[in-house]
Design a protein around this nucleic acid. Structure first.
Length: 806
RNA sequence: GCGGGAGUGGCGAAACGGUAUACGCGAUGGUCUCAAACACCAUUGUCCGAGAGGACGUGUGGGUUCGACUCCCACCUCCCGCACCA
């Protein structure tokens, strides 16, 4: 017997929506719970990753509500950006039309899952009402000197025809299309996230309820290094700065290296014997993608013909160009100390350069460069000092002479936010011949993205070809001017959208301070691990900026972060291109949303990747059919007096409640579900043995209340059929009663030397002495005791007695 | 190389230092049925044994403990992140 999930699920989805059950207002009388799932890019097709994400989110919405919280769970669309635009290009439908179609489709599908949102707060980043405030944010940052345009070496994806942020380059490949990223020198817009590097790093400590893994990834990404920066003179004129974390080893400097892109290079190779060779090397390094540069086996480089003077001992050392030194980090130049640095050692060995040790390695040290601690040697006034003392001492020495200082460097670079693509928010800046760069005034926002037919990427923004967009008048002098034609990275949208849900209608401001003041921070944020350093770092940055502006009341946006594992099929990530997707829509039809939701909860630990198994959904559906049968049983329910069987079943229900509650609170859904299965199995057995009406109703109610956040449709339907009260979603989570949960008897395990030799049923309140007595009285145990002398008894009533014999 | 996580049945996986393998899937046998499906019942780590029962068993090797999947040390394998960051 199988229940009619199609009718039931459609019925309740409609009803919850009509009743506006999950629409929320500020309510100071209850604690708030702001529950957000990362808003999706509207691909038009719900996949199992979404289902997993929204199942967790909806479970929490419903559960927290039953626990008395005022829960806000909104939904929106990450509808600007490369993925949406590329999908439009592929389909040949204009991005706006295509994106809006996809949103409609996905919204329908999300509703079929039965996951509930306050749709009054729905937002989409391609909506001018939304991106108006991308532009406002941009201008706020600009005024504070935190948005700037600068020419520099940038990552360029030749396939997507746009620049990319460092965070969007993965292993030298474009994050979106896996094309090797090239380097180009271009003038681009940046947000100065590096100004926030220390705060972003330090505040990671405050993120108690974030996964360690994500915090660590952010720490590594920010990459703080303490060291020193100092100036080195070139013999014959010129100078350059170097950064090092080991200034204590400066006496061991036997050469210097400049990055091929270093500005001084051109000057010092001029007229040298190796000039031709050097120019060729620089040119090749410029052509190479990061992948090629990294793939290079062994170090390469060219002598410049020039020498540097070591400031501590006036020694002349050769200057090389080598691509193992990166222009983008530190100063793009290093002092090379092969004795204490593995990379420098490798280079020195290859090029026959002297190697001097300045740190005494331990006697048993074998190997090349020694990077560990030890007394300083061969270093004049630093000799004998440990590393930290030597570093402090040399920094003081450099500072006294005005040639250097202690310095902190970060791996984090500024966030490159301009894109040479159509589908994004236009940058609200006008270039005027006489006034220069001018802000678009607030009253002229949003700078609307015009509808254009030729939106294909072409290396510069397609907007540049749109004269009616480009040509404008200067807001300051009314003279002729042109607009910026690049659009913003879609990660700008996602860095603040969670504030906007709190005040989504506002046309005058991103939001009124008091609105998110009630809801923020997001109490639970759920999404994929792939955003660990992209979205989650940017969102923290922008939140800190809004805090500094007095707009945000919180410095950190997400109090609790949960990153779900991936659903895989035969060990591989499900993806449309691989053709190994299991379509949720087909499962809505065949098994129902409830069975699918339950399978996602049951499949394994939520943080872990989990392998999909079609039969697994059969299993959760079978379970729901069993619940349905229990609810519609034709067993005769009597009004006899309460028996042990009744007390046992009610006791189990309460123990189940305790476990399910604890498991939900710590996101162990995969163990909460089996607990409910055990309860329903016992319930089913009970129905075959003279069931009693009162017990039946009591346990069924508890079962339905516990199921309602997981499988809301079937739970609501049964609740209604049984006439158990008003709408199940509005019921309170049941109260655990330890008295009822208590068990009368326990299984006493009797061990001999740690091995199980007997099991005895004993009263649950048995004393240690009685347990020992019963254990010793057991016939099976007697035979084991014959083998030796009883040395010791460990009794842990009521479950364990261990007899130690020898 | 650095950092993190994980290794348990045929499979997904459970297990505050105390019954290893709950629950689900799959498999085998049975009941129901004209038959099938559904459902229900039983069995299902390996080896020895007719059985009672016993031995072994959570990647490998040690250790701590009355007792170790769990704690400690060393190693192996896999996954993830960062990676010539000075």
């Amino acid at each position: 017997m199988s229940y009619d999930h199609k009718t039931i699920e459609a019925k309740w989805q409609k009803l919850w929506e009509q009743d506006r059950t999950f629409y929320t207002e500020v309510d100071e009388s209850r604690p708030k719970f702001y529950n957000v799932c990362m808003y999706p890019y509207p691909s038009g097709a719900l996949h199992q990753g979404h289902v997993r994400n929204y199942t967790y989110g909806d479970l929490l919405t419903r559960y927290k509500r039953m626990r008395g919280y005022n829960v806000l769970s909104p939904m929106g669309w990450d509808s600007f950006g490369l993925p949406a635009e590329n999908a439009a290009i592929k389909s040949g439908i204009h991005p706006k039309v295509n994106t809006e179609n996809q949103i409609d489709k996905m919204k329908t599908q999300i509703r079929q899952l039965g996951s509930m949102y306050d749709w009054d707060r729905e937002l989409a980043s391609h909506d001018p009402r939304f991106y108006k405030f991308d532009q406002w944010l941009f201008l706020e940052l600009y005024r504070k000197g935190l948005a700037y345009k600068q020419e520099g070496l940038v990552n360029w994806c030749p396939n997507d025809q746009t620049v990319l942020a460092n965070e969007q380059v993965v292993d030298g490949l474009c994050e979106r299309c896996d094309t090797p990223v090239e380097k180009k020198t271009l003038a681009q817009w940046y947000f100065k996230i590096t100004d926030f590097a220390d705060r972003l790093l330090d505040d990671i400590e405050k993120l108690e309820h974030w996964p360690e893994r994500v915090k660590l990834m952010q720490k590594n990404w920010i990459g703080r290094s303490e060291g020193a920066r100092f100036t080195i003179q070139v013999d014959g004129g010129g100078e350059f700065d170097v950064f090092t974390t080991r200034p204590d080893t400066v006496f061991g400097m036997t050469f210097c290296v400049l990055a091929p892109e270093h500005p001084l290079v051109d000057e010092i190779i001029q007229g040298s014997e190796t000039e031709a060779q050097a120019r060729e090397y620089i040119e090749a390094a410029g052509r190479a993608t990061d992948v090629e540069r990294m793939a290079e086996g062994g170090k390469t480089g060219v002598f410049t013909g020039s020498y540097a003077i070591n400031p501590v001992n006036d020694k002349r050392v050769p200057i090389y160009i080598a691509d193992y030194v990166l222009m983008g980090y530190g100063t793009g130049a290093i002092m090379a100390v092969p004795g204490q640095d593995e990379r420098d050692w490798e280079f020195a060995a290859k090029f026959g350069i002297d190697i001097i040790r300045t740190v005494e390695p331990p006697a048993d040290f074998e190997g090349d460069a020694y990077v560990g601690d030890g007394p300083t040697i061969n270093s004049d006034f630093l000799d004998g000092l440990g590393r930290d003392e030597a570093i402090a001492s040399i920094i003081q020495w450099l500072e006294e002479r005005g040639i250097g200082e202690g310095k902190v460097e970060y791996r984090l670079r500024d966030w490159l936010i301009s894109r040479q693509r159509y589908w994004g928010s236009p940058i609200p800046i006008v270039n005027c011949e006489s006034c220069g760069m001018v802000e678009v005034p607030f009253e002229d926002l949003p700078v609307l993205l015009p509808h254009i037919e030729d939106y294909m990427p072409k290396g510069q923004s397609p907007l540049a070809a749109e004269a009616s967009f480009v040509n404008t008048t200067c807001p300051e002098c009314d003279g002729p001017a042109t607009r910026e034609t690049d659009t913003m990275d879609t990660f700008v949208d996602s860095s603040w959208y969670f504030f906007r849900y709190a005040d989504v209608e506002n046309t005058n401001a991103m939001f009124e301070r008091s609105k998110p003041a009630y809801w923020m921070p997001v109490d639970q944020y759920i999404g994929g691990i792939e955003h660990a350093v992209l979205h989650l770092l940017y969102a923290r940055f922008i939140t800190k900026f809004l805090y500094d502006e007095g707009l945000s009341t919180v410095e950190e946006p997400f109090a609790r972060l949960f990153t779900q594992g991936m659903i895989t099929l035969d060990g591989a990530k499900m993806s449309k291109s691989k053709g190994n997707v299991v379509d949720p829509l087909a499962l809505f039809a065949s098994h129902g949303a409830d069975a699918l939701r339950l399978y996602h909860l049951f499949i394994g630990p939520p943080t872990d990747d989990a392998g999909w198994n079609d039969r697994g959904v059969d299993g959760t559906r079978r379970f729901l059919d069993r619940v349905w049968r229990i609810a519609t049983t034709d067993a005769e329910l009597s009004d006899r007096a309460e028996s042990d069987a009744d007390r046992e079943l009610v006791g189990l229900a309460h123990r189940t409640l305790k476990k399910v509650t604890e498991d939900i609170d710590r996101f162990h859904f995969n163990t909460a579900v089996p607990a409910l299965m055990v309860l329903s199995n016992e319930f089913n057995t009970y129905l075959g043995e003279e069931p009693r009406q009162a017990t039946y109703d009591e346990v069924l109610k508890m079962l339905l209340l516990m199921l309602s956040p997981m499988t809301p449709h079937i739970a609501h339907e049964i609740w209604e059929i049984k006439g158990y009260g008003s709408l199940l979603a509005l019921q309170a989570w049941p109260e655990f009663d330890p008295e009822l949960a208590r068990e009368e008897t326990a299984m006493l395990i009797v061990q001999v030397n740690g091995k199980v030799r007997d099991r005895l049923e004993v009263p649950a309140d048995i004393t240690a002495d009685n347990a020992e007595e019963m254990a010793l009285a057991s016939e099976k145990i007697q035979t084991w005791l014959e083998d030796g002398e009883l040395k010791k008894v460990i009794a842990r009533p009521p479950n364990l007695v261990n007899l130690v014999i020898a």
